[in-house]
Every structure is written in structure tokens, then in C-alpha cells.
Design a protein around this nucleic acid. Structure first.
Lengths: 119, 119
DNA sequence: ACAGGACATCGACATCTGTCAATATAGATG
DNA sequence: CATCTATATTGACAGATGTCGATGTCCTGT
């Protein structure tokens, strides 16, 4: 199933700069956006996202990610699942390895909703 | 005490567009940013921020905010405290009333870190 | 000084979250 | 098939989080 980003992604929000300040969010909108922020709101998951997003080709193998943390393999797998379930990561299994790719469109929409640097 | 936004606010991040993808976040950076996201990662607090940020003069009285939710007054007070402690809201007591103001600079820095719409 | 209203703090509670060790699954290779 | 390796799932547990009712604090009028 695809990720419902309708709240975030319409072209008019691309006009940029704190739609948060553009008008009160509806309860429904808030309840759709909060889970995305919650998925990002953890130091480990933030680092995972930045590691993946900044990796060559915009994707990274789990095997590389495990080594970057002082955490157990199941814990990393758990965080990756949360990010994937939230729609912030795409998953691609190739042979024995699994590659995750950052959904930059989702990140951009989220960032735009929170606030952009004032032109 | 002032809020440490050094991780976010230097002018070079204003260049915009997913610094998340610009390079791996350090553990320290991730641990500084995550609490800000965590403060925002709740439907009630998201609505509070948008209500305050979009209110006349960029500030709102608690008395108005309480009415906008189906929650007890202590609960709203609690959420406001979290946002204030995270550095996303300024607090200003005037007489019997307390006014909260959105820290748009903090929001903009956060938004820029997560991602902006590709130019 | 007193009473009333606006907001914060406290204590309690159920639920959610991050972590691990143990185990399962699935693909590659002998 | 048997085995090894990479990743996911499960079960358990300590600690964090959202909510409330009760109570405290501080300002303003009377």
C-alpha cells in the first residue's frame, strides 16, 4: 500500500515556509503527520535516515548500518521497520542483502510543513 | 537559559534541502535534534504549535488554547510545557494570562534539517 | 484581607517505546 | 540436503509518555 501524504504533498505547500503558521492544522491532519515525526524523533533513527540518505546511490545495505551502531542487530532491524512502516524508507531485497532507500519526497514534505528558512 | 540550536541554525544550513542527506549526522547532533522532533511528534502538540503560530501576532493565550481541545486543562498545560522546554515556544506572562509564542527560527531550522522542497 | 479565576504542579495510572537474547526465515553455497 | 550468513520476528522487561483529578500558586478585584 502506498503512503498517504496527501496532507503534506500538494503543490501549494511547496510554496514553502511554515505551513504550520499558515493556519491551524485539523485534528485529522495532525494525526496523520504526527506518526511521521514520531518515526524520526529518535537519535538512532535520525542517524539511520542520514546514513541512508547520504549514502552512495541514496541507499544502504543493512549490513553496513549495523556496524555504525553499538546496538544489537534486532534493534537496528526494529528501527528500520518503524521508518519503513512510517513511509520514510523503501525496502529492496537483493539476494541475501536488504537495501533501504530514503523517501526524499516524504522528507521534503515533512520539512516543508514544519518550516523552511524564510526566503 | 537559552536554547542550544547550534546544530541547526548556522547560516550554511539555510542553503536548504535535506542536510539529512548531506552527510551522516553525528551521534551528538542526532541526540540534540531528536528531542525537538519528539516535542513536535504528537497530534495535540502539532495542533498547539499551528494554533499558536497562525494566531494573530504569532502568539496565543492559554485560555484560548484550552477551548480548542477536548482535553483537561492540566493536560494542555503539560503539552505546552514540553514545547516550551524543547525551545519551540516562548512563554510570556501578562497579568493573569500566559501567552505562548512560536519560535519560528527553531521551526525553520528543524524543517531545513529534515528537508525542503527541491528548488 | 479575602475570594475567584488562570495556569502550573503533583501523584497515579494505563499504555507505548527501546532494548536485548533467543529463535525463525530465507537465500547462497558446498 | 546441510550449512552458513543476513535479516526479521518474538517475548520479555525497564523506563518513558499521555491523561486525569486534586491541589498549589499567583494575580486581580472587591
Amino acid at each position: 500500500m502506498s503512503i498517504p501524504l496527501a496532507v503534506l504533498s500538494p503543490a501549494d505547500t511547496a510554496a514553502c515556509c511554515t505551513p504550520l503558521a499558515a493556519g491551524p492544522l485539523s485534528t485529522e491532519q495532525a494525526e496523520q503527520v504526527a506518526p511521521l515525526l514520531k518515526a524520526l524523533a529518535d537519535p538512532v533513527r535520525l542517524r539511520l535516515m542520514s546514513l541512508i540518505a547520504s549514502h552512495d546511490g541514496g541507499e544502504a545495505c543493512v549490513c553496513d548500518l549495523n556496524d555504525a551502531f553499538d546496538l544489537s542487530q534486532p534493534t537496528i532491524s526494529h528501527h528500520l521497520k518503524l521508518l519503513h512502516d512510517a513511509g520514510l524508507l523503501d525496502r529492496d531485497k537483493r539476494g541475501v542483502w536488504v537495501y533501504y532507500r530514503a523517501r526524499t519526497a516524504a522528507l521534503a514534505s515533512l520539512g516543508a510543513l514544519i518550516g523552511c528558512p524564510p526566503a
